[in-house]
Design a protein around this nucleic acid. Structure first.
Lengths: 149, 149
DNA sequence: TATTGTTATACTCTATAACTATA
DNA sequence: TATAGTTATAGAGTATAACAATA
């Protein structure tokens, strides 16, 4: 038995073309996105956390984990590193002493207000090369893909 | 200045809806994909390398790096781990002694021939929930997204 | 001089599970 | 007993740069 993809069975595995397109589109996007964050001294997970915390009064670890899909064990390390950079702070929660609230510091708020609009503009230069109609249609199909997982 | 996304400026940042859709579709796919490989004892980068090596006489580090987008420094470690698992072997290249050829071992070939068709079938159960027409259209838009990066 | 792969450094993230404090 | 977060463990990937061998 060979797994070589021949012309004959290629039609049965059309979806692999979609898989490859998804992976490559995402990889190229992710590399570009990460480069933008790295220029501001942030990793992608760190930027995700800051973005989640923006415009909030603070979130618990559980809430941040739900928004960013980072599991609690990993999140402790990510928050540690953001705290070392003085971008977030842990604030004890008097109502439930099990929970810790994570908030943006003044510096973190500044980064959120300055880096993120710049980053969004940086992404926009690329996505604006697609028509709005294509953007909407691409979004629709991506929702369909997400729905099957 | 606030970066809060209001109704008023949301229309200017429509593309963010597309960004989120791309990230979420990929994340869900990637988690499912990685779970399939993990069940076979492989990480995603390791599986990518085995897939690149399948149906070849062996590839150099440079060639594998080009196919998988793994940089050479990282690739040394990935190949080391695959070699420890006896799935690949480094073969000296007599023509150009700078190059090392990496080949699937007998076990590696077996994994390639057994795991990969199973994995493709595992992915197919999800992607087949989309119509072929949707698969083709989704592919088209993903190519367009890739093209802007 | 340029190329190939290795090595070293330092960091970051992941999964998993045991553990502590609190509810 | 359940939940929140920390810690420990072990493994893996990333970026970057210096390096040795070869071309």
């Amino acid at each position: 038995m060979s797994t070589k993809i021949t012309f004959k069975n290629a039609s049965k595995q059309d979806f692999l073309v979609l898989v490859r397109a998804l992976v490559r589109a995402y990889q190229d996007f992710a590399a570009y996105d990460a480069a933008g964050h790295r220029a501001a001294g942030l990793t992608s997970p760190q930027a995700d956390v800051l973005f989640a915390l923006g415009n909030t009064e603070g979130l618990t670890f559980r809430e941040i984990g739900e928004k960013t899909l980072i599991t609690k064990g990993t999140l402790t390390g990510v928050i540690d590193r953001l705290e070392n950079k003085r971008l977030v702070q842990r604030v004890p929660n008097p109502n439930d002493k099990r929970c810790t609230l994570v908030q943006l510091t003044r510096t973190g708020t500044q980064v959120f207000q300055e880096h993120f609009p710049r980053h969004i503009a940086y992404l926009k230069t690329r996505f604006d090369q697609l028509t709005h109609s294509d953007q909407r249609r691409a979004t629709r199909f991506l929702h369909k893909i997400k729905a099957v997982f």
